[in-house]
Computed example of a mutant assay.
Amino acid sequence: MNGSGPITRRGFVGGALLAGFGGKAFAQGFAGLGESADGFASVVPGRTFAFPADHGPHPEFRIEWWYVTANLADANGVAYGAQWTLFRQAIAAGGPQEGWANQQIWMGHAAVTRADTHRFSQTFARGGVGQAGVEAEPFHAWIDAWEMRRLVPVNGENIAPLELKAAGADFSYALRLDADRPLVLQGDGGYSRKSLREQASYYYSQPHYTAKGILTIDDRPVDVTGMAWLDREWSSQPLASDQSGWDWLSLHFSAGDKLMLYRMRQADGQHYGSGKWIAPDGKTELLVSADIIMTPLNFTEIEKRKIPTTWRIAIPRMALSIECTPLNARSWMGTIFPYWEGPIRFAGSHTGVGYLEMTGY
């Protein structure tokens, strides 16, 4: 395991800027996501998304990420998880500056999980010097040697096919991602609310990837296949000041449906929930707080913290009642802003696999 450790995709956006990046450091924590975003662009309803342009960066907003999770298995049925993330954070508002004066900070985050191990790594870069970035056309997202790039001219409506690569000291993976269905706009046409106030992000997903490639742990490569999920979000102030973190799931149902859910935890206990059900034919249905029941069942103690690693999820109006269990209950990212993230399985009224992220515990 890489001792430097990554920080969560959503933790980073409110998180740390290392002193080595221009001599300025800060550590806002998750609550920092609720601080004033004066000078940055606002997220408002009614945006018209444009692809492939929106696959690229939006530097007028403070925070952004390109994030992939993959539920994989080898020929013997051994399950794995893989994760790839590129974050962008602006440390100051205003038009992009040249070279080392550029206000953009980039972080790459990669991880693999198996039932008996969890490995992760990270890398950082300053914008403006070519070490990291994203190009919308032809699509290419990279930081150092980690990259997500087109294999042939990419269909902007489904952002496929892609190649995904990353490596740490004791793991690596190279995956091909294909999709034959279009992107999904989360929330209300891509406007994803995070509270009953003005906090929101622009958010879309590609939940329909099939994945195949090679995953290596301790110099032992295996051929893997499975399903993958891409999330794209950007915002300037996605959390309210009284929200401490979130519990987020992406679920692949055995019957072909997909489901995205999250719960933003609030100090008063009136947690804000949202989600989207995606049918095999591509039709979607928005879910609101009143639709979603998320109940922690079992906890894992990690670094003197009690982490809810087994959950019961119920959506009565969709006749869904499932229990989600982790592939590895110790999928813990012990970083500057510790969090839990890893692959899960679920059973009950529906069966399948997915990913769970929990921050702020």
Rank of each mutant, 00 (worst) to 15 (best):
W311H: 00
H252G: 04
S254V: 03
L86A: 13
S250M: 03
A25L: 12
D180N: 03
H271C: 09
I7R: 11
W246G: 01
K24W: 11
G29V: 13
Y339S: 15
T310P: 00
D257W: 14
G168T: 08
V152C: 07
S289P: 02
T300Q: 15
A92E: 11
D242C: 07
R330A: 10
G275I: 04
D231Q: 09
A25I: 09
Y203H: 00
T69L: 00
A174Q: 15
G99R: 12
D188F: 00
L72H: 01
G130K: 06
R181E: 14
V154G: 02
G168C: 11
Y173L: 08
I336R: 05
F253V: 02
G56A: 09
Y204S: 08
L183G: 05
R88S: 07
A267Q: 15
D116F: 05
A200V: 12
F139V: 14
H109I: 08
T284R: 08
T225F: 01
D223C: 04
P316V: 10
I322L: 07
E301G: 11
I315F: 02
Q243Y: 04
L185T: 07
G334T: 08
I91H: 14
I313Y: 06
V224K: 01
P45K: 02
W100P: 08
A93D: 07
G95W: 10
S235I: 02
S236V: 08
G360K: 12
Q186E: 14
S201N: 07
D170H: 12
D188H: 03
W106A: 05
I63A: 14
L320K: 01
D291S: 03
P316K: 09
R312H: 14
H118N: 00
G226D: 12
S331M: 04
H140F: 11
F61G: 04
G282E: 10
K276C: 10
A82N: 04
F61R: 03
D144L: 04
A73D: 11
L356W: 03
E137L: 06
D291N: 05
Y67S: 09
G11F: 04
P57R: 00
A132V: 02
E198V: 03
N102K: 09
G34F: 12
L164N: 10
Q266D: 03
G213L: 03
G130D: 09
L356S: 04
A31F: 12
Q186V: 07
R176L: 03
E163D: 12
F171A: 13
D188V: 06
A329K: 03
E98V: 06
A16Q: 02
G348I: 06
M318T: 01
F299S: 07
F299V: 09
F120K: 07
A167V: 04
Y361H: 14
A101S: 14
F49S: 06
I143V: 08
M294A: 14
S241K: 15
Y191G: 06
I336M: 00
I322T: 09
